[in-house]
Each structure stands twice: as C-alpha cells, then as structure tokens.
C-alpha cells in the first residue's frame, strides 16, 4: 500500500555497515528498503544478524559505512523503543515518560499532561509514582513504550519491544500497540525474530539473512489495515505465508547456530541458497 506513495519517509539505499577499523566485521550488506508514510514495516531475521543496527542507523546512533539512510522529513519526531526498557532508575515512571518530552521544548504543564495521557494509553496511570525497580518487566516495557508514544512520534522504531515478556503480556501489548499505531497512522519500523508478531503487526515484512545480513525477500502482507490477531490467524494466507517465511529463515538460523544443524543440513542450505538467490533477484528488480 503505502510504498506507492511518491516519497517514502525512510529510505535505505545500498546500505553497508561494518564495525571495526578495517571493516573486518561486516554486519549489513547492500540493504535497500523503503518505509512509506503511515506504513508498518517489520524486519525479521535470525538473532544477532544486525537487525538492531538497522534501527540504530535510522535513529542516528551509528553511521553507515557506505550507502545512505534518508529520513525524508528531517523535522519528524522519532521514538525508539528498545529490547530492554532502558528506564532511568533514579526517575519514577512519570518522570521517565517525561524524559522524551523534555527534549522537545514544551512547557512544564504540557509535558505533564502528555505524559499522563501516554501513561493512560498503556494503562500505567496508577503506577506513575513508582520507580522502575518496583515494576514487573512487562510494566517497565510499557513505561518505555509510553515514553516513546508520548512524543506523538511521526516515526516509531521498535526493537523486539516485547521479546523479553511472557506470551500473555506480549499478545496483549501487541494488540494494544497495533491499535495505537493504526489510530495515529504512525510510520513504524519493527525489528523482531517472532514470525507471528511480524505477520500480525506489519503491512510489509522484510526477511534478513544471517550475518553479514542482506534483505532476502520482502513480503506484502494481505491481512488488511484493520487486522486483529484472531482475524489474521484465520486468514487463508496466514499459514502458507508463515510456512514460507519459516523455511526461508531456516538455513539462516542454522548458519547462525551450527549446533542446531540437522542431518539434512547441507540439503537445506543448498535449497536455501537457491531460494535466496531467487529472492535477491526478485528484490533487485
């Protein structure tokens, strides 16, 4: 849908990233990706492949080695929700949510009001006077989400934001997030290693290979803008897509974690490479 917009909000052009002085450790290779306005793009890949680096590049926490990452609207307010909550331990929940707002030059009263709103949005209103160590992991992550959402961001960067949570809390927060992002038409880039999460939340899904990571294939997801978990799971294309993505990721996970390679590993890898080259060819068009 949104990638047909004349100008995407975020554009990756042949982005390469390597760490170390002499580029010995290559993390990202030739990443091309657009994120249209109001679109939710998910990036999925084996753990440790460099997915987080993609978000760090957009957030300006690190620079590309070559290629470019462009955010079309430089005034856009971005919010970054990390894998771990990253709350300031010496601030209570309210003050932690206010942290993001303090950076954009609002009056004290506006800061307070908008933090209150965001806390209500994630149902933390009653806990705003507590310090992070007094909250459960799920509540901490919700506070981190509120810190991002309070900004009313034009661009939301999510790095496996629910990865550390139990399945129940995760499912609940995913639906909540989906509702919020839909309601405010927030352009979102989500990094995850959970196929179901990606299928539920994303408009488009980019599958990455293991390190050095390339985008192997981009899927257009057919579940419509007003999707919900139950509807998505019941959709006739859900299972085939899930299987296809799983198979696409299998050799990548085995490459990351050789211990898990089965007896037919060589066969799977060979198949994966074939598939991979086809997918790359497809992406390059």
């Amino acid at each position: 849908m949104a990638q047909d917009d004349p100008q995407p909000l975020v554009t990756f052009e042949r982005v390469c990233k390597s760490f170390g002085r002499r580029a010995e450790e290559s993390v990202l290779v030739d990443v091309d990706l657009d994120v249209g306005r109001g679109e939710l793009v998910a990036i999925i890949g084996p753990s440790g492949c460099g997915k987080s680096t993609v978000l760090n590049l957009v957030a300006g926490l690190t620079d590309v080695t070559s290629g470019s990452v462009r955010v079309a609207d430089p005034e856009v307010r971005s919010a970054y929700v990390f894998q771990n909550p990253r709350l300031l331990p010496w601030r209570d929940v309210q003050a932690n949510v206010e942290f993001s707002l303090e950076q954009i030059g609002l009056s004290r009263k506006d800061i307070r009001d908008r933090a209150d709103e965001a806390l209500d949005l994630v149902h933390l209103g009653q806990h705003k006077d507590k310090y992070p160590h007094e909250l459960s992991g799920g509540m901490q992550q919700r506070a981190a989400l509120a810190r991002g959402l309070a900004l009313d961001p034009g661009l939301l960067l999510l790095d496996e934001p629910f990865g550390a949570l139990d399945a129940l809390t995760r499912g609940y927060l995913q639906e909540e997030l989906l509702g919020i992002v839909r309601r405010f038409q927030t352009t979102t880039l989500l990094v995850t290693h959970d196929i179901d999460e990606a299928l539920l939340l994303a408009d488009r899904l980019a599958v990455m290979s293991s390190r050095p990571a390339r985008i192997r294939q981009i899927f257009e997801l057919p579940f419509g803008p007003d999707r919900a978990l139950d509807k998505v799971v019941a959709h006739p294309e859900f299972l085939p897509l899930r299987t296809e993505i799983r198979e696409l990721l299998r050799p990548e996970v085995e490459a990351t974690d050789p211990g898990s390679a089965s007896t037919d590993a060589s066969q799977a890898t060979a198949a994966g490479t074939r598939r991979g080259s086809r997918a790359r060819a497809g992406t390059a068009q």
Partner: peptide
C-alpha cells in the same frame, strides 16, 4: 551505555545527557 544511547535516540544534547544520565 544503553541509557546514554536511549537519551541520544530521544535527541538529548550532551549537557542534558550529563545532567540526566
């Protein structure tokens, strides 16, 4: 370092990072 990166991602300047983190 994670907290410093968090502050930076929310566009805190160096003085603010010094004071708040």
């Amino acid at each position: 370092r994670d907290l410093v990166d968090m502050a930076r991602a929310y566009h805190a300047n160096e003085t603010t990072i010094m004071r708040t983190v």
